Computed example of a mutant assay.
Amino acid sequence: MSATTDHRRGLRQAVDFGALVAFLLAYGVHRFVRGLDGQQALVEATWVLVGASALALAVGWRLERRLAPLPLLAGGFALIFGSLTLIFHDPTLLKLKLTIQNTLLAMVLLGSLPFRKYPFRYLLESAFRLTEAGWRGLTLRYGLFFAAVAIVNEVIWRTQSDDVWVSFRGGLWLASAGFGIWQVVYIMKHMIRDEPEDAPGATTPDPDR
């Protein structure tokens, strides 16, 4: 992987994270500076979320000339449910977005396990190779994580205030980052490394064969 590719991916991830930060800041301004109630502040902040999500997708396309599946899914859901929130003036749709998005991801990942057709293998195999058990375990872990996010989101938005839900939305990014770092250790454990040609036990091709 080249330094240029790393730089582009880093910039795209920064823009993706910036969309969430912009949304959180916009909510804070409308809620605590302008004094709007939580529902109205969420609707007003959704304008920022929709614009920032569109910008993130545009930057991703500009940098890589393609839309990677996961950023496309996240950005697409943000645009769709954000637009519906603005059209119907109902922030419940924005809250449901997190549940629906993560439920679909969980269903796809967990549903692939019986068939041994792991989506992560098709998405990530160009970056690294894992054992069969590694792909299966990684798929299971992320499937359960997405399912847990969907469940927790449902509990929070249905039982807590808008301020608590927005705080949860921000904390979820930190939880996701921490979970991702934890999976790096798992990936390293199950990674297939090319055996050096001069390693003990390595065979030398017979030129006369």
Rank of each mutant, 00 (worst) to 15 (best):
L11V: 13
A56M: 02
S126D: 15
S112Y: 06
L109I: 04
R121D: 05
V108Q: 04
V164Y: 12
F32A: 13
L94W: 09
K95F: 07
A54K: 02
L123P: 01
G171E: 02
L98W: 11
V43L: 10
L57W: 02
L105F: 10
G143S: 03
M1I: 12
S53V: 06
Q101L: 13
A202R: 15
P207E: 01
D194N: 09
L79G: 04
W47M: 13
P200T: 08
I181C: 11
I80A: 13
V50R: 03
I181R: 07
I156K: 04
D37T: 13
L73W: 11
V185P: 03
L36C: 13
L172D: 01
G143P: 00
R193S: 06
D6P: 05
L113A: 02
W61T: 04
V152W: 03
Q183N: 14
S161Y: 05
H190I: 09
P200N: 10
L24G: 09
V152H: 07
D90I: 01
H89K: 13
R31S: 08
A3G: 13
A45M: 09
G38H: 06
S83T: 15
V15R: 03
P91N: 03
T85R: 00
I87P: 02
E197Y: 08
D6R: 15
Y122C: 01
L140I: 06
W135Y: 12
G178S: 06
G134F: 02
D163R: 06
T103M: 15
L84W: 10
I181D: 08
T103K: 05
S2C: 08
